[in-house]
Nucleic acid binder design. Structure first.
Lengths: 342, 342
DNA sequence: AAGATGGGCTAAAACGATTTAGTACTTTTG
DNA sequence: CAAAAGTACTAAATCGTTTTAGCCCATCTT
């Protein structure tokens, strides 16, 4: 059983394909097709179970009603939630999302962009990797709108971005720790050149310096990006073995690092918050349920997804026009969620 | 800057589009295109940054090199991991995956199938909802292969499926609890007619009866599917408030229910495993990290993804042929992961 | 009554590829 | 040396739509 095409309908209904097309696209009235013909065509189409071929349609119109979403790793809770919110939001605009993961690999990201471009997606929402700005500029040059999420390129303000206010979020967390009387605060971050992580790190340094506390390198643990679970765990464990001695609070700069931290804390049997206060950037089910529950700086994930989609839709609507839309990165406030760990 | 098409290349290289097409598809040798022309075309294509339009290609060839993946909810850890494994595996066959979530809604699932069908995906991997068998039969009638994952239709053996051995998994868990001396075992499951959950429930009943333990309705909690987080939590909490009195072990039949269970246990301050032994079907980071860590029956998620893709590829390869492939659901063994909760 | 207007439809081009059937030469063969 | 075979390509059809231009007939103007 083959799929039915518009010409099958035309033949069966005894009209031309143009007529069928007009009817199927609600242009029948504009094209003054008669009531009877409209009904005839609609009936035949329904009976035969006609579904327009989107490839053909996309080829002809140049619009696929599809947006390409590139995240770091779809199996990570943060990105999975973000993806779901983008999928839901896109549906409200009658757009479909196709997603893929970069695993934070520059080359893979480039491949994915190419792949999506070949599939003619109308626009892109991208969690960029390092050095991806040029490839993204190329998409823009082809008149394909792009919105970055979670990360951005400070040197490329012509690429719009939607993300949490990383600096403010970390600063707020630090001030909270200070308020609670902690001043010897260790930091666990990930090794990357990307601006969003630099902003977080900068906030840590700035708050310390604002409180005239010297920055101690030994309290800042930078986990290499490519390290596997065990290696990363070992690094974090070795830092945390100094808990209570050289520092009394720790701030994990990502959700993944926080989970590693919990694992290490559990292994080392550190008392939280007695021996060590714990704060993490980015929430996770585990933090809510762990005993003691872990306080976090929570990103407004749904809002990021929604804003990203609406920014993209805006650009899609005005695509081709010269109207330069404002491009300052849209930053959203993070919440401080106080739990038991501090 | 418009995208370059095959005819742009042809014009610039001074050859016909056919020639360009042959070169781009490695059919140049077969078509005895000369060395010089091949090189000429390749160079021009590279210079102009040519990327074939997959819509046009798909329209002409009828193959999109895309598989449609329908899961229940991509933001759930189980499905996110499964999706990632399918994406990775599909890439090895040079296929792209487009995914979407049903939220376990029959109508939404139907819409998604239509949507993917309109986009001409070559094959489907589907986590079905209830009553979806007919829609899936229709895909098969159109000669589009389908492989079910995680769930199956016992009444439709012509639809292949890859899933964990649910019955065996739960039975193994029950026997383990029995071995450890627990016989008053409560069960928390989800309200659904779907066979995979019935299999799990049946295993619970069978093991009890094998040990001549009467089934007590009051120990079986069936959480309605549509209930929100709070309502579900209340249900579980109310069951667990009887812990230590009417039962001394609890078996959660899904990952999501287990997480709810932990939340309830934490709130009720139940001692695990002292007052209550806990076992859950399906792993989750939380179970590993929670204190006490929770023992689970772990599904081989990666293997399910891989088998599903390879089964689909098999069918894709033989598509159109009459060779009926064996369709008995492929079931994979679940592991019992012993931790602290029992 | 001739031209204009409008109603109700259709023909055909176009989108960007793939693929079959040729074409115009040159070389081989009996 | 004519026919057959091979070489190196190209023309054109095709996939399933959308959309522009236009056709034919009836009715309305003047």
């Amino acid at each position: 059983m083959k799929k039915v095409s518009i010409s099958d309908i035309a033949r069966k209904a005894g009209v031309s394909v143009s007529t069928v097309s007009f009817v199927m696209n609600d242009k029948a009235v504009k094209m003054r097709i008669s009531r009877e013909v409209i009904e005839k065509v609609e009936n035949v189409a329904r009976e035969m179970g006609y579904r327009p071929n989107q490839l053909a349609r996309g080829l002809r119109t140049g619009k696929t009603k599809t947006i390409g979403l590139i995240v770091e790793n779809i199996s990570n809770a943060f990105f999975a939630t973000l993806a779901k919110s983008i999928e839901d939001e896109a549906k409200r605009y009658d757009y479909k999302v196709v997603y893929c993961s970069t695993d934070n690999d520059e080359e893979k990201a480039r491949d994915l962009i190419n792949m999506l471009s070949q599939r003619q997606v109308d626009g892109y929402i991208i969690t960029p990797t390092l050095n991806l700005a040029e490839d993204i500029r190329r998409l823009q040059a082809e008149n394909k709108p792009v919105v970055l999420i979670d990360r951005y390129f400070p040197a490329h303000t012509e690429i719009p971005a939607v993300l949490v206010d990383n600096y403010e979020g970390v600063a707020r967390g630090m001030e909270y720790l200070m308020d609670k009387g902690y001043s010897r605060i260790a930091l666990v971050t990930i090794e990357t050149e990307m601006a969003h992580m630099k902003d977080r790190l900068r906030a840590y340094c700035d708050v310390l310096s604002r409180h005239s506390i010297p920055l101690q390198d030994s309290l800042v643990q930078i986990v290499p990006y490519n390290s596997d679970h065990q290696a990363a765990l070992n690094e974090v464990t070795s830092l945390l073995s100094g808990a209570g001695k050289s520092f009394d609070a720790v701030f994990f700069l990502t959700n993944y690092l926080g989970v590693l931290g919990i694992e290490a804390i559990k292994k080392l049997q550190i008392k939280v918050p007695g021996q060590l206060a714990v704060l993490c950037f980015d929430d996770n089910d585990i933090f809510r349920l762990y005993t003691p529950s872990i306080s976090v700086i929570r990103q407004p994930i749904e809002a990021i997804g929604q804003k990203a989609v609406s920014a993209l839709m805006e650009r899609l609507r005005h695509s081709g026009e010269e109207t330069a839309l404002p491009n300052a990165p849209v930053t959203l406030e993070a919440d401080l969620v106080k739990r038991e760990s501090i």
